[in-house]
Write a protein that binds this DNA or RNA. Sequence first.
DNA 1: CCTGTCGGCGCAATATTCTTGCTAGAACCT
DNA 2: AGGTTCTAGCAAGAATATTGCGCCGACAGG
Lengths: 161, 161
Amino acid sequence: MALDKIDRKILTLLQKDATMPVAEIGRKVGLSTTPCWRRIQKMEEDGVIKRRVAVLEPTKVNAGVTVFVSVKTNEHSDGWLRKFATTVEDFNEVVEFYRMSGDIDYLLRVVVPDIAAYDAFYKRLIAKIALTDVSSSFAMEQIKYTTALPLEYVMVADDDK
Amino acid sequence: MALDKIDRKILTLLQKDATMPVAEIGRKVGLSTTPCWRRIQKMEEDGVIKRRVAVLEPTKVNAGVTVFVSVKTNEHSDGWLRKFATTVEDFNEVVEFYRMSGDIDYLLRVVVPDIAAYDAFYKRLIAKIALTDVSSSFAMEQIKYTTALPLEYVMVADDDK
DNA sequence: CCTGTCGGCGCAATATTCTTGCTAGAACCT
DNA sequence: AGGTTCTAGCAAGAATATTGCGCCGACAGG
């Protein structure tokens, strides 16, 4: 499952634009289409490439407001956690959900059209699961958002130029 | 630029899997391939669909650790903001970057392989731009991450079933 | 030094999917 | 009713993905 520099280049390209024809990718990384296609195929099988998706413009689908929701809790039992997790995951408005170290226990990124919709979401959430210490922070502006992970850290063999 | 229920269905599918053939999308939304293709095309022209990308598995590319970085600042001049924004954006490790309301001014989501790499990133960051009040929170677990925006809020005409 | 095996590359043929030109029907206005 | 516009659909053509096959270089064993 080791990746080399060519694989990394391919991933860099696919993270930007997954519609690019394999032939063109091959050309850019210095490979003909077949080996390039096989590498992509392998990375999909290996789960390096998880999937290909369409990225939408938030404002155009009425989902332009991001709210970060910090949750602190006293409940730390495994059962409660599981219930909390599944409950939260089912909300489409929750696009990211992390268990944190430190001060706060969970952090959610919630996407809604406006403050009113956030309030409605919030009510629906706490109706489903009791939460005591919740704090909401509104994003005024999304300065950067990318699905592209940094590839500087992928392991490549030494003899690989 | 109005979207109807069929468009919304198409977007739902494409947000999950952008490799699905247009013919199959058409079948699922009750349309033949041509009109379905034209709708997709139009949504791309209108910027509703921004692009199609490959989503990678973070752990497989050595980018499995997320750190949220909160920044407070006294500098609020337009020039400083612009410099800050462009500086931060250039770091591939920064995958999300928001200007916030309330207590903290900026929030970044940073992706790195481990704590050591985060420390290195942090040093590189503050070397480029002076920051006084910075606080880092580590995510222990990514419970949910999706690029799919909620489509419950898209405006659809009333007469549209 | 030779030889067999393995792995990755590339060409060429095939299969699938995308893209476009054209026709037709429904809704709407005049 | 006639005309206009919008959207669907068919079918042909173009582009792209996918596969089979042969080639070449690296490497290990004799």
